[in-house]
Design a protein around this nucleic acid. Structure first.
Lengths: 189, 189, 189, 189
DNA sequence: CATGAATGAGTCTTCATTCAT
DNA sequence: TATGAATGAAGACTCATTCAT
């Protein structure tokens, strides 16, 4: 029940921040959307700032869930890449502002170690994916898995941001995805 | 002479924002660093917000200059990639915060079209590089040059940010660069 | 049993207020110290403000008890003064903040008449002391007993506060007390 | 000119605090009265709290000026005492709330050493007065001048506060003063 | 052009108090 | 009685911006 309120606030914050950006969003906007009182906010988050890592965790968690759902274990690596790109482009479209925050680490001030631990499960999943593909002979052996995980994820996210921030979304989307997929495939397979 | 003040302010802004982040930096910090009066700021910039594109332009311009300097026309594409990665990692190390802003487009509010025009020369240089390499047979023909320009730049920048924000800089730097270079080479050559 | 809680709260309040001052002390600090719930406070005190007279009453009551204990009926007036000064200095040392409140009437807002009645037994005891001494020829007759009661008490308290707030306690204490005692003796005997 | 604003604020603060008490007074009340903007306040005082020592200094300064004016060098000690009591009762009547704050040291938080230096000139003047009277044979020699200064001042202030806070002012004033004067005279002469 | 004191709208945060359980 | 999560009014403080000099 009390977790309810905390989640209402988090969800509201993600929505509000996504819509109007983080600097423009007031705590009062968040609580209004969440349907709780101003003071209730501070029962669960020590400050407006404290929301940032919480939001990141929530969104990355959701994104990872999506990935786990759409990327099937027995798919080929090529198909997995395609699914991942699709998923990441979709999520990015929805949460541009907030994700930009997460990706760029702009929210610094909360210790970076906190960010590390938030991203960790994400990268771990990616590591396993790559290692699995390596074992199946779908991915070259001479790569640093850890770093490559980050490069690949970073590239997908960057591509999506580029697309949704600057280009006319609808038309270019297909080309962007296609190019991103091929780029990664060539680099790894 | 009056351009002097304008540049003092811009330089000071880049320094201050790099050091303490953009949300924490006050106009008063910037003018103090620049050694001008509070009011002088508004003689050259219509608002605090107006600094963002100006900073981006300045930094991207500098970065492009560096690239043009270090990346020699007659080098092999492989060497060019290495030089680019080196350069971008160096610049990113210095201007993390501000670049994060530029890269992620978080600074929105100024029309996006403005951003497009700021990035344009950057991407054009990249386009030429790729096309030149294609002509020399160093890069595959079946890529969309425009999009690939963005993917490659984005990837280099992302990798650098990952490195300097999260990992222990010194040790990992070499591995990160190496992996990034190879990733791109494989994807393109 | 229920009086237990009420007293726990009052005691906790005196402790907390003594330690961190009245403006800094939150109701939540008091209840935490008292080991009761936030709401319980309002079962026994109508508001935070209502604590002030209650605390005053409690402390003045304690102080009066101490005085009655240490100041023996058949002592000489001179000895009584000495005992009083000792006692008041001791209590003041312990409850500086709260007593300052009581003495200075800063806590106004609760009707002053309430304060009058709180102080009343205190002054009455003092009146009797003076009258008794007058009858024994130890104190001059040409004084207004009522007013002198207040002057004497006020002076002792003031002296103690001066000492414990501003001077290096340990060293000066003896001199302060001595001077205060003689001052009063000369004025009255 | 800029000192003007600072003084406007200080004066306004003393007035407002005197009228409605310190806890009830908002910074916004003070600036309204002073006729300056909210932000201007913070140009001169770092916080609402920072006003307290400033007010104390101002008031004690004024009070000392009054004392110096009304207490003539060549008056007898007895007359000086009378003038002092008159003056202190008058000032106390006007600035009860604020003085209570000063006297009781409740404003702590600012280092006590600051308070010491504020009171210092006050006590020094008193010291000289006593020493002068000693030399003229009007005050006994066997007193600690420093401590007695504080006792005497403290007593006068206490008496005035007692009067104006608790008793029906008009009627009792004369008796209070009279009694205070005699008390001190007997103790010292 | 340059200054910097003054402005005041805007927001975060606190905390006494309430009330459903 | 007792609880403590929830409330929301209230206020301190910040800082981008202006303007008289």
């Amino acid at each position: 029940m009390s977790q309810d309120k905390k989640n209402q606030i988090l969800t509201a914050a993600i929505d509000v921040f996504s819509e109007i950006g983080i600097e423009n969003a007031k705590v009062s906007d968040v609580v209004k959307r969440a349907g709780v009182a101003q003071g209730t906010f501070y029962l669960y988050y020590s400050s407006k700032h404290a929301l940032i890592p919480a939001m990141a965790e929530q969104l990355l968690h959701e994104q990872l869930d999506s990935l786990k759902e759409y990327v099937q274990d027995d798919d080929s690596f090529a198909k997995k890449i395609r699914q991942m790109v699709d998923t990441i482009f979709k999520v990015t479209d929805r949460y541009q502002h907030v994700l930009a925050l997460c990706y760029s680490g702009l929210a610094m001030g909360s210790g970076l170690s906190e960010w590390e631990s938030i991203y960790e499960p994400y990268y771990q999943w990616m590591d396993q994916l790559l290692e699995h593909a390596q074992r199946r002979g779908e991915v070259r052996k001479n790569i640093d898995v850890r770093i490559t995980s980050k490069l690949v994820t970073g590239m997908m996210e960057e591509a999506a941001e580029q697309l949704y921030l600057f280009d006319e979304n609808a038309k270019q989307a297909k080309a962007y995805k296609q190019e991103t997929i091929q780029f990664i495939e060539r680099a790894l397979m």
